[in-house]
C-alpha cells in the first residue's frame, strides 16, 4: 500500500472497501499482526472498528515513521527474513494486505503466517481479472488501477490469479475458510476469477 501523509492519532481512518472487507472477518478484541502494514492505516482502522490490539511490520523508513505518527505499534523488519521475532500461535489473525505479490519468499511467508497466527488473511490484486487478460492477449503486460506499474518498474514480482493462490494454499497445508472478491466498492459473486480485481482469503493451518 502506498504511504500517505498522516495526521495525528486522534484522527480517525475513513471507511475503505478493502479495509472493510478485512474488518468484517476480524472478531472484536483480538490480537492482530499486520505484515507490510504501510502507514498503519489498516491497523488503526481495525483498532477503531474492532478494538483489536496489534503490531505492524514494515521495512520502509517513511512508513515506519507514519506508523509512529499514527500511534501504531510498528516493528521495522524485513518480511523476507521471516517472522522470528514472533512466537508460534501468538496472534489471532496475521494479515498480509496487498503485499504477497511483491514478496520474493512467497511460500515462506505463508508458512510463517500459519505458524504465528491462528488464522491468516491475505489480499492481492487478481491477475486473472478480464482486463488484465485482455491486455496480455493484446500483447502487453497489464497496467491497471490495481496494478498501476509498468513491467519494468513494478515491485510486483509474484502476481497470481485466484486459482493460483488456492493451489499454493493447498500446497502449504492452509485450509481456506473464506474468500471474498472485490471490484472497486462492490463484492463480486459471479465469475470471481474473471470479474474480481482484488481477492481476499481467510485461511487456517490444516489439522493434521
Amino acid at each position: 500500500m502506498a504511504a500517505k501523509t498522516t495526521a495525528s492519532t486522534t484522527e480517525t481512518v475513513a471507511w475503505r472497501p478493502d479495509f472493510d472487507a478485512i474488518a468484517n472477518w476480524i472478531k472484536p478484541n483480538t490480537k492482530i499482526l499486520d505484515l507490510g502494514c504501510g502507514d498503519g492505516a489498516l491497523l488503526k482502522y481495525l483498532q477503531q472498528e474492532r478494538s483489536v490490539f496489534g503490531y505492524g511490520v514494515e521495512i520502509d523508513d517513511k512508513n515506519v515513521l507514519s506508523c509512529l505518527q499514527n500511534g501504531i505499534n510498528v516493528i521495522q523488519n524485513d518480511l523476507e527474513s521471516g517472522l522470528s521475532s514472533f512466537a508460534t500461535d501468538s496472534f489471532d489473525y496475521v494479515i498480509l494486505s496487498q503485499t504477497l505479490q511483491a514478496m520474493k519468499h512467497t511460500e515462506d511467508i505463508l508458512q510463517e503466517m500459519l505458524r504465528v497466527g491462528r488464522e491468516g488473511i491475505v489480499s492481492f490484486p487478481n491477475f486473472g481479472h478480464w482486463k488484465n487478460r485482455l491486455q496480455v492477449i493484446c500483447g502487453h503486460m497489464p497496467v491497471s488501477e490495481s496494478l498501476p506499474y509498468h513491467w519494468y518498474d513494478t515491485p510486483n514480482i509474484h502476481l497470481c490469479t485466484l486459482g493460483d493462490f488456492e493451489e499454493l494454499c493447498h500446497q502449504c497445508h492452509a485450509n481456506i475458510l473464506e474468500c471474498r472478491v472485490m471490484s472497486g466498492d462492490h463484492q463480486v459473486t459471479v465469475l470471481p476469477n474473471l470479474m474480481g480485481k482484488l481477492a481476499f482469503y481467510r485461511f487456517e493451518r490444516q489439522m493434521k
Binding site: C67, L68, I75, A87
Partner: peptide, 16 residues
Amino acid sequence: IVKALLDNNINVSYGE
C-alpha cells in the same frame, strides 16, 4: 529486547 516485549503483549515499536 523487542522479542521479549512482544512475547508479553507490550506496546512496542522498533526502528532499525
